[in-house]
Design a protein around this nucleic acid. Structure first.
Length: 313
DNA sequence: GTCAGTATTGGCTGAACCAC
DNA sequence: GTGGTTCAGCCAATACTGAC
């Protein structure tokens, strides 16, 4: 089907393209999970149906004209940056948040980010989208287990969901936003990182990370957050679970909305195409009729002139 | 057990951009 | 013009997963 030669776009990825890629990856993850959990016949292994090809196709359908290799590479780079930021945010949370020495990633400037070897320009909306994909994936992979796990609620989402009375301070697309008001997301972040089974992503986290084993520097896995009383743990995990439930509800409703929006757009496009082709058909039809009438008129004139001639003689 | 596909990470290069 | 930075793109290495 997609055998035609595609002309792939080059150059920097726009935010829109990146969001499409993240969406594509999310869809693909969902699809694979469905397959894995028996939702579909396990045709996942079709040799011809390569994963990144599907991602590429999805991207093309949504206006992101990149090749599967480009998508793969971009995703790699995205994940690298994302993990750095996420790790930093966790450290900040564990160290006591803004009260302590370190500030949230979103509150530090470019130079400070550089000092921490963090990406200088990770956008909150992209980070949020990645949080949704990564956390959902790791959660889904744990399904069957307690399922609880600490969910990292994206900063922007947490703000909208827990502070409904906030004025619409954040425009739909935040150019290079640094959330200026208190980041509830960070608070949830903090809570999430305290949950007993906090490191949700560590479970799914890279085989490679495991392979590089030892991972010396990050020694502070799991147990690092040794929190005092078990009651505190319970409260934290309860809050975190509630947060995850709310986040999931919001997320699924957003997804539905988005899907509907896309359907409406594609319907609109199809309608325009049909209208255009109708107009074209009408034009051709009218032209045909005009031609026919002209021919008829001509032949009538000919006929009339022929009839007139013998009489005149 | 083998193999193909995939995920992840690290390293490198080249182009584009920016500050000086 | 030059040097530094960022990012896309490419490659290699390693390990996991699922099919056979």
């Amino acid at each position: 089907m997609a055998n035609e030669q595609r002309e792939y776009r080059k150059g920097n990825w726009t935010v829109a393209e990146t969001m499409v890629l993240i969406e594509a990856k999310k869809m693909d993850d969902e699809r694979r999970l469905m397959i894995r959990h028996g939702g579909e016949s396990s045709s996942s292994g079709k040799p011809g149906e390569l994963r990144w090809k599907r991602v590429e196709d999805y991207c093309w359908k949504n206006g992101c004209l990149r090749s599967q290799n480009q998508c793969n590479d971009k995703w790699d780079n995205l994940m690298r940056d994302f993990k750095k930021v996420r790790e930093y945010q966790r450290r900040v949370a564990v160290a006591g948040g803004d009260g302590g020495g370190e500030k949230s990633y979103w509150k530090i400037d470019k130079n400070e980010r550089k000092e921490h070897t963090l990406p200088s320009n990770m956008l909150p909306q992209i980070f949020d989208a990645l949080v949704q994909v990564v956390e959902r994936k790791s959660q889904a992979e744990m399904v069957g287990g307690s399922g609880g796990g600490g969910v990292i609620v994206p900063a922007a989402e947490a703000q909208t969901m827990l502070l409904p009375l906030q004025p619409p301070a954040q425009p739909p697309t935040r150019p290079f936003a640094e959330p200026s008001f208190p980041t509830v997301g960070d608070i949830i972040f903090e809570l999430s990182s305290y949950t007993p089974d906090s490191d949700t992503s560590e479970h799914s986290e890279s085989p490679a990370k495991r392979r590089r084993g030892g991972g010396g520097e990050q020694g502070g896995d799991g147990g690092a957050g040794a929190v005092g009383g078990s009651s505190l743990q319970e409260v934290c995990s309860a809050i975190s679970q509630s947060g995850s439930i709310i986040a999931e509800a919001i997320q699924s409703s957003e997804e539905r909305e988005e899907r509907r929006h896309r359907e409406v757009l594609s319907l609109h496009e199809r309608r325009l195409q049909i209208e255009e082709s109708n107009a074209e058909i009408n034009r051709q039809g009218i032209n045909g009729i005009v031609d026919a009438i002209n021919k008829l008129a001509n032949s009538m004139l000919d006929l009339a002139s022929q009839k007139n001639q013998p009489e005149s003689k």
